[in-house]
């Protein structure tokens, strides 16, 4: 049986902020864990409430920050370092782990009441009836956001409709699209490198028409990455359409218009064909990137994603092949 492992502090230190930023950038996230177990915050006694969270350190961090003026117990369960909502979808934030962690930590002897407060987003993994049968504790769901917990407590441990609804506001949209941008850097660099290489190859024919566009190759590729991640994330509700691929399609049109106008002064039909091919490839990349934002959004359903992926992905592939053909044809004939 584990004893009460540690006292937690509601304040964040510099390490917590650095860790959070590193997670957003996708650095060492796999190792960002809190040890599972029972913790205390403030000076809890046997009547103090018990809050359950995941062992993704950030999840535990936002909970202890929300509880900084509260005397409470925090039960961290082992979700393999994954946040509450994601882990609940997989069942790792779930009935079996809660039962075993409650029993392992001897929570029954620490508190006299029999209520566990779970984050609402943990609900997809939890069968309250089974938790009660196997531990004696009944499950009460708290608010979606840990920051609402003080208000939840004031309301007599009730979450109102607003607290129960998951939003997708701009700070969160920017945060997740930043993560997508970092993950998209490498493939984007590969696309830019490919453009630079074909420029070089075709310039070997002695035609200088395709050289001198190094900076445009790079800025266009980075522009596509930005458009498909941060810009899409920021503008998400303003972009037309419900499907993410349609939203991405609008960004890619704006992107294409912008870069076409930029190169129009150099225009010859073959050069337009050659550069148009590049723009088509990047436009497809934008749609793909925005489609992938579904995974970090808070409201897309699997049925919807399946539907729009089945339609948009073949179009993206076809567009990219057409773009490739245009580059080759244009490059050879230039």
């Amino acid at each position: 049986m584990d004893a009460v492992t540690d006292k937690l502090d509601g304040r964040w230190g510099i390490k917590d902020y650095i860790g959070t930023v590193m997670c957003l950038l996708g650095i060492r996230r796999k190792f960002y864990k809190q040890n599972p177990g029972l913790y205390s915050i403030g000076n809890p006694d046997s009547k103090s409430p018990v809050f359950v969270t995941a062992n993704y350190k950030y999840s535990a961090d936002v909970l202890r920050r929300a509880l900084k003026n509260t005397d409470a117990w925090i039960l961290v369960i082992d979700t393999k370092g994954i946040n509450v909502w994601c882990a609940a979808g997989k069942g790792t934030f779930g009935t079996a782990e809660i039962i075993s962690r409650v029993n392992k930590t001897g929570l029954k002897d620490t508190v006299s009441h029999r209520t566990l407060i779970l984050p609402q987003l943990g609900a997809p993994g939890v069968k309250p009836a089974e938790v009660r049968k196997n531990t004696g504790f009944s499950v009460k769901y708290g608010p979606v956001e840990a920051d609402d917990i003080p208000q939840f407590i004031k309301n007599g441990f009730t979450a109102d409709r607003k607290m129960r609804t998951k939003q997708f506001r701009i700070p969160e949209r920017l945060a997740v699209s930043l993560t997508h941008m970092v993950q998209g850097l490498l493939p984007t660099a590969a696309i830019a490198l490919f453009f630079v290489l074909v420029d070089f190859l075709f310039s070997l024919k002695g035609n200088s028409g395709v050289t001198g566009f190094l900076s445009i190759n790079i800025s266009a590729s980075l522009g596509a990455l930005l458009g498909g991640t941060l810009i899409a994330g920021a503008l998400l509700p303003l972009l037309p359409g419900r499907a993410f691929s349609i939203k991405g399609f609008f960004i890619s049109i704006l992107f294409a218009l912008f870069f076409f106008q930029k190169i129009s002064s150099y225009s010859s039909p073959l050069f337009t064909l050659y550069t148009g091919g590049k723009i088509l490839i990047l436009a497809g990349w934008i749609v793909y990137l925005v489609l992938n934002l579904t995974g970090s959004s808070t409201y897309t359903s699997l049925s919807g994603v399946k539907k729009e992926t089945a339609i948009s992905l073949p179009l993206v592939a076809a567009g990219s092949f057409a773009g490739l053909a245009m580059i080759i044809t244009g490059g050879i004939l230039l």
């Binding site: 957003l24 796999k30 950030y58 909502w85 997989k90 945060a175 993560t179 995974g295």
Partner: peptide, 16 residues
Amino acid sequence: AQSCCGGGGSGSSCCC
């Protein structure tokens, strides 16, 4: 871990 599961602003920005 994929992007979604690291969580962004709220640490819970996905359903996977």
